[in-house]
Design a protein around this nucleic acid. Structure first.
Length: 460
RNA sequence: GGCUCCAUCAUCUAAUGGUUAGGAUUUCAGAUUUUCAUUCUGGUCAUAGGGGUUCAAAUCCCCUUGGAGUCACCA
């Protein structure tokens, strides 16, 4: 069985890059009928944040990714890590190091000054004497001293690391007894039965260390897939300063989960010329071995396009429901079908749609001089009056086409082009020179409101 | 700086060693629309550079250049 996991550290919210690796992990597990686990990496108490895990769960819920089983918190698994650290101690695969932090720092400084690699000097590796007094010990694992470690990566291929270049006896438990990252990751992934580790390629250089832990503990290695980073427009790793990195921001901006997921899955992965992927299709087609090797730049233009695509193809019921989050209540509106049809083709986001809806439903508060100058000419008033009269004389005005007929008749009667009536009427109804079809707008707000808005403009 | 990874249009990406290097987004032009948007049609735009290997290289190898990631008692 394939078991994957998403293991964020709780830093406040779900990062867009995190969502991508979570999605890929999710897809691969689900595609194989496996499990997708969620684990919160909170071993560093000083940076712990209770709300963070909740934020991640909330974001998962919004996009519709479901994890299996309970959420594991590393902070509640301390006893487990201690047990395995002790095991390594007992077996002589790890040892206590009494070197004070200050000395370590000093050593590192010297080495750096000599342009050498900063590296622990193994002074306590084979220590058997009496421990110095008043010294809190850290636990270090015995890393190989020579040779190489090869990461067999499903994305990058075999990556060989020379032990002398990258390793030393790294710390697996701090002086206060809490375990460190590379140790707990390996222990947890092994204990939780994770078979396929799909994560950002910023972890590639950690992997040899984790392999050391796996091997010391006698755990079988999982498959690794290191997914390239998402870069910002400057070509650097995406960070908080790059605007919307919080997944939930996309909800408030009016993107749909379908569009976001579709966008993310296409970053670094593709299937021929296909651009639109439903969740079903992703599940059917995704395979981590097809992930690209190179980083991709985060550019939301395509996300906008995808989002408008999904909006256009969404049922009005669903739109109505989603629009509530953006403060638009249409459930009981009798013309909501016409409204939504008129508005969904011209909005890139739900937020935009909410604005457009408001512009139709609420009469313009005032009129912009520049707009009037451009679209409300000398003859406009007479035309609008004629149109208002025609509306009053007409009966059974319900559909956009009913209003369209009235417009046609007025245009024919006055022997003018559509533009002559369209511009001023649009100003009267919407207060601007662009927008949805006027016949639809009138059908939505009804005859009375239409007449009232025309009157407001004429009487100003 | 050490180690590691990466390199096709502006962006996301296709291309059993053999294609006029394809698609999508963006952009531009035209058509449709009373307007805007949508939609449709069409156009512009790429194999980082240099060496090899080969009948044939975007594709394999080497070098250069450029970019990124990582080097903690953070995760």
């Amino acid at each position: 069985m394939i078991v994957t996991r998403f293991a964020p550290s709780p830093t406040g919210y779900l990062h867009i890059g995190g969502l991508r690796t979570a999605l890929l992990s999710y897809l691969w597990a689900r595609r194989n009928g496996g499990k997708f686990l969620l684990r919160i990496e909170d071993t560093d108490f000083s940076r712990n944040d209770e709300a963070a895990a909740l934020a991640i769960v909330e974001a998962f819920k919004w996009v519709g990714l479901e994890h299996d089983g309970v959420i594991e918190y590393q902070s509640s698994r301390l006893a487990i890590y201690q047990e395995y650290a002790q095991k390594l101690l007992d077996e002589g695969k790890a040892y206590k190091c009494y070197m004070p932090k200050e000395e370590l720092d000093a050593l590192r400084e010297e080495q750096t000054a000599r342009k050498e690699r900063a590296k622990y000097d193994n002074r306590y590796r084979d220590f058997t004497g009496t421990p110095p007094e008043g010294c809190e010990a850290v636990i270090r694992i015995k890393a190989p001293l020579e040779g190489s470690i090869t990461v067999h990566d499903g994305v990058k291929g075999d990556v060989v690391f020379n032990v002398a270049d990258i390793l030393d006896d790294f710390i697996i438990a701090r002086a206060d007894g809490t375990p460190t990252y590379n140790f707990v990751v390996a222990v947890d992934d092994a204990l939780m039965g994770v078979t396929d580790v799909i994560r950002g390629d910023d972890h590639l250089s950690n992997t040899p260390k984790q392999i050391v832990v796996y091997e010391a503990l006698g755990f079988p290695l999982p498959k690794f897939f290191h997914v390239p980073m998402i870069h910002n427009s400057e070509g650097k790793k995406l960070s908080k300063r790059d605007g919307a990195t919080d997944v939930m921001m996309y909800k408030t901006m009016g993107y749909t989960p379908e569009a976001l997921l579709n966008f993310l899955v296409r970053l670094g992965w593709s299937h021929g010329d296909q651009e639109i992927f439903s969740m079903e299709e992703m599940l059917e087609l995704f395979d981590p071995k097809d992930i690209n090797r190179s980083a991709s730049v985060y550019n939301t233009e395509k996300l906008d396009w995808l989002n408008s695509h999904y909006l256009k193809n969404m049922s009005n019921e669903k739109l109505c429901e989603l629009l509530e989050f953006h403060g638009v209540m249409l459930i009981s509106h009798d013309k909501r079908e016409i409204l939504l049809d008129a508005v969904k083709e011209r909005a890139k986001t739900l937020a935009e749609m909410a604005v457009l809806t408001g512009e139709i439903l609420v009469a313009p508060a005032d009129f912009d001089e520049a707009v009037l100058k451009k679209g409300y000419k000398e003859e406009s008033r007479a035309i609008l009056e004629a149109f208002a009269l025609a509306l009053q004389n007409a009966s059974e005005l319900h559909l956009p086409s009913d209003y369209h007929h009235v417009m046609e008749s007025v245009v024919a009667q006055l022997e003018i082009g559509f533009g002559k009536i369209g511009q001023p009427l649009r100003i009267a109804l919407l207060g601007k020179l662009s927008g949805p079809g006027l016949d639809s707008v009138m059908a939505i707000i009804g005859v009375e409101e239409t007449l009232a808005r025309i009157n407001t403009l004429i009487q100003r």
